[in-house]
Design a protein around this nucleic acid. Structure first.
Length: 480
RNA sequence: GGGGCCGUGGGGUAGCUUGGUCUAUCCUGCCGGCUUUGGGAGCCGGCGACCCGAGUUCAAAUCUCGGCGGCCCCA
C-alpha cells in the first residue's frame, strides 16, 4: 500500500469536487447556484473546527453575539469605501409581501455596518475598552465568478467575524498580534502551515487602513486565503460615530479591528492533507478518530463483533472518538469507505486477533499497518494519533516550502507559474503602478508583502519591473 | 458585453442525425433475500429518469419556438 497523490495534484479541481460529495461533506445539488447543503459528516468536522475557535475566543476575552442578517440600506451606506467594495455583490430585500419596502434591506455580506451603530450605543467610556465580540453566522455575496463548494460560495454559512474597539492605535495593533496568535494556535490544531502577507493598498478590505491575509497553497499551486485581519484605524468609528470618554473627560473615536475566517478552513484541511484515496483528517477534528472493522470468518469460534465492541468501549472510556463498523458489507469496502472519509486510524480485528488478544492498526496518512497487543492498545492508539498529527503537519510544511520560490526577475517568475506554480517572491519598488503591471504580466495576484514587515524589507535588489531600488519582497500567486 | 455547447432515475450514461415494440440502454447507487467476509465478491428479486411550456404530427426523449438551468471560450 502506497500513498498516491497523482489525481490530487494533477487534477485537483475534479478530485476536490468529487470528494466533497462522496465523502459526505456537502450536497451541491441545491437549486441555487453557490448555495450548498451541509451534510452531517461535513458539519461535524466543521463544528469541531469551530470548537477550537470558540476556545480561543474565550481564552482571549471575546464575547459571542448574534446580529440580524438584514441591514437597512441607510446603515450600509455610511462608510464610503465599504459600500464601493460590496455594493456590486449584495443581495437586496426590496419587498415585503406585495409591497415595496420604504427602506430597502441588504442581506449582510459581512457585519460591520450591522454592528457599528450598536457599538456607538454600547461604548461609552475608556472603561468599556477594549471591546471584543465575535459571531459565526451566514453571510451572502453574489459571486459572479465560478463558485466552488466551501471556497467561493454565495452563502458563506460558517462566517466567523471578530470585531474589536480600542482606545488607541497601539492597542488595536496589539489586537492584530493577538489575532495572529489565535490563528497560529488554530492552524496547529488543523496541522496547516501557512503564510501571512500584508495586502497591497489596492487589495485591502473595503474601509480598512491595512489588511493582513493568511493563506495556504493548494495541491494545484494556487493559494487559498483562510484568514484575514484588518486594522480599520478610526475609519468606521468616524462613519458610525463610535466615541468614548477618556479619563480626562474629553471624547475620542475608537480604533477598530476585525478578524475573519470561514468554512474555507475546512476546504484547506481537505485539500492540503488529502490524497488519491480521499480525505485525511487531522485527529484533532476528525468526528471519528478511530474506526474498528471486524473481520468475520465462517466457522470461527470467535465473535469478532463482540471483540470490536469491547475495544470500542475501552477507547471511548479513554476519551477517543471511536466507531465500530458492524455494517453487513465486506471489510474491504469498509476500508475504502473510511479512507475516503479520512478517518485517521483504522483498527482491524479478526479471529487471529481475538485469539492472540491483539489488533491491527492501519494509519490513514501513511497506509502503514502494524499489530499491537490488546493490553497496550489505548497507549498505542494515542501515540499513533499524535504521530499522524505530526506527520500531517510535516508533510504539509514540506509541500508549502517547496512551493514558495524567491526570484529576481519576471522571467524567472513566469517560469515558476508555468511549472509547478505556488508563491513567487519578487523584489518590488513599492509603487502601486509597478505592482499592478506585474500582476498583469504574470497573470497572478499580488498577495502582498511578507508580514511582519521587517521580513519583507530588502536592500541591494532592483524592482523586477521598473529596475529602481527595491524596497520590499512582494508575493505573487494564482489565487482561489 | 460577444460566441459556443449541454439538460434522460440519487450519480454517470446510451438513444436524438433519419419521429414509430422507448413498455427508454448499460454501469453505479438504494431496498429485500441467500451466500460470503484479512482490500471494492457472487447470485436472485425489487426501486428509480426523458428540465418546463407551447407547437408540428396519427405518433415526440427525438423536430420547431419560447422559458428556466448548467458548463466552456473570448472581451
Amino acid at each position: 500500500m502506497k500513498v498516491e497523490r497523482n489525481k490530487w495534484q494533477n487534477n485537483f479541481s475534479e478530485w476536490y469536487n468529487e470528494l466533497i460529495e462522496t465523502a459526505g461533506i456537502q450536497d451541491k445539488r441545491y437549486p441555487v447556484k453557490g448555495m450548498n447543503i451541509w451534510l452531517p459528516y461535513g458539519l461535524r468536522i466543521m463544528r469541531n473546527i469551530e470548537k477550537f475557535i470558540h476556545e480561543e475566543m474565550e481564552r482571549t476575552g471575546h464575547q459571542e453575539v448574534l446580529f440580524p442578517a438584514l441591514i437597512p440600506e441607510t446603515e450600509f451606506q455610511k462608510e464610503a469605501e465599504h459600500i464601493a467594495g460590496f455594493e456590486g455583490e449584495v443581495f437586496w430585500v426590496t419587498h415585503a409581501g406585495h409591497d415595496p419596502l420604504d427602506v430597502r434591506l441588504i442581506l449582510r455580506p459581512t457585519s460591520e455596518t450591522a454592528m457599528y451603530s450598536m457599538f456607538a450605543l454600547w461604548i461609552r467610556s475608556h472603561a468599556d475598552l477594549p471591546f471584543k465580540i465575535y459571531q459565526i453566522v451566514n453571510v451572502y455575496r453574489y459571486e459572479t465568478k465560478h463558485t466552488r463548494p466551501l471556497i467561493r460560495v454565495r452563502e458563506i454559512s460558517r462566517f466567523f467575524e471578530a470585531h474589536t474597539a480600542h482606545d488607541s492605535f497601539e492597542d488595536a495593533e496589539r489586537q492584530i498580534k493577538e489575532d495572529l496568535e489565535i490563528f497560529d494556535n488554530l492552524a496547529k490544531k488543523l496541522a496547516l502551515p501557512y503564510i501571512v502577507s500584508k495586502r497591497p493598498e489596492w487589495d485591502k478590505f473595503p474601509g480598512a487602513y491595512y489588511s493582513l491575509g493568511a493563506e495556504v497553497v493548494m495541491p494545484d499551486g494556487r493559494t487559498l486565503q483562510i484568514g484575514t485581519m484588518h486594522n480599520y484605524k478610526q475609519n468606521f468609528a468616524k462613519a458610525y460615530n463610535i466615541m468614548y470618554e477618556k479619563e480626562d473627560g474629553t471624547h475620542e473615536y475608537v480604533h477598530q479591528t476585525t478578524y475573519g475566517m470561514s468554512e474555507r478552513l475546512l476546504a484547506a484541511v481537505i485539500a492540503v492533507h488529502g490524497d488519491d484515496r480521499g480525505m485525511v483528517l487531522p485527529p484533532t477534528i476528525a468526528p471519528i478518530q478511530v474506526v474498528i472493522v471486524p473481520i468475520p470468518k465462517k466457522d470461527s469460534p470467535y465473535d469478532v463483533f463482540a471483540y470490536a465492541r469491547e475495544i470500542a468501549e475501552e477507547l471511548k472510556t479513554a476519551g477517543i472518538r471511536v466507531h465500530a463498523d458492524e455494517r453487513d458489507i465486506r471489510p474491504g469496502r469498509k476500508f475504502y469507505d473510511w479512507e475516503l472519509k479520512g478517518v485517521p486510524l483504522r483498527i482491524e480485528v479478526g479471529p487471529r486477533d481475538v485469539e492472540g488478544q491483539k489488533a491491527v492498526l492501519a494509519r490513514r496518512d501513511t497506509l502503514e499497518k502494524f499489530t499491537v497487543e490488546r493490553a497496550e492498545l489505548v497507549e498505542k492508539v494515542r501515540e499513533t494519533l499524535d504521530a499522524i498529527m505530526e506527520n500531517l503537519y510535516a508533510r504539509a510544511k514540506e509541500f508549502l516550502d517547496s512551493h514558495i520560490k524567491r526570484v529576481d526577475t519576471l522571467e524567472e517568475a513566469k517560469e515558476v507559474f508555468e511549472d509547478r506554480r505556488g508563491v513567487v517572491e519578487i523584489p518590488w519598488c513599492g509603487e502601486e503602478s509597478c505592482g499592478l503591471e506585474m500582476e498583469e504580466i504574470l497573470d497572478a495576484k499580488m498577495l502582498g508583502i511578507p508580514y511582519p514587515e521587517e521580513e519583507a524589507k530588502i536592500e541591494g535588489k532592483k524592482c523586477a519591473h521598473c529596475g529602481k531600488d527595491a524596497k520590499f519582497i512582494a508575493r505573487f500567486a494564482r489565487t482561489y
